[in-house]
Design a protein around this nucleic acid. Structure first.
Length: 155
DNA sequence: ATATTGACCAGTT
DNA sequence: TAACTGGCCAATA
């Protein structure tokens, strides 16, 4: 089980997700100020499976898809854990993000106590990305910026 | 000590 | 439309 700053922040965020809701790998990466680190988020979760207090089932991919490599049971195990949360899993092994995706409130994000370095990264990456990204990704970035600005622009 | 690998993601051919 | 590319982080080999 990784104990790096990065992994610990990932687990902290995952533990905030309420039962019955989900976040995506990419969403967590963006919140950490590393918009391209989605795979690393998945890696951290893979190694967190033993931790009873980390609800890994509440993280899905950008399409709402379940994880092929979830624990030792693969998608079936992931589905079982989500259904225990009363989340409906569709026949194609996805969940409806419109319905279940969760964003932390600014106050909840503030509780993460992200390092100044992470916040700097966050702002820099968001600025850098703006020109190159597709409309859908820009929408995501704007949403993130809106979510974080109140708590993070103040000293 | 370096190279490879993944529960990913989005841009570009 | 499908395949490829580069980027992320930390554990393996």
């Amino acid at each position: 089980m990784p104990t790096s700053e990065f992994s610990n922040k990932v687990y902290e965020i995952v533990r905030m997700i309420p039962p019955g809701r989900v976040m995506t790998y990419g969403q967590i990466a963006v919140l950490l100020g590393l918009p391209r680190a989605a795979q690393a988020v998945g890696w951290a979760l893979h190694w967190a499976m033993d931790e009873a207090n980390t609800p890994c089932q509440r993280v899905v991919n950008r399409y709402g898809g379940l994880a092929q490599g979830y624990g030792w049971g693969g998608q079936a195990a992931h589905r079982a854990d989500l259904e225990a949360d009363e989340v409906e899993v569709r026949p194609d092994m996805t969940v409806d993000l419109e319905r279940y995706q969760w964003w932390p409130t600014p106050a909840e994000i503030a509780r993460l106590k992200l390092s100044p370095q992470a916040l700097e990264n966050l702002n820099r990456k968001l600025e850098f990305s703006r020109e190159q990204l597709s409309r859908s990704k820009v929408r995501l970035q704007k949403r993130v910026k809106q979510v974080v600005k109140d708590d993070f622009t103040a000293p």
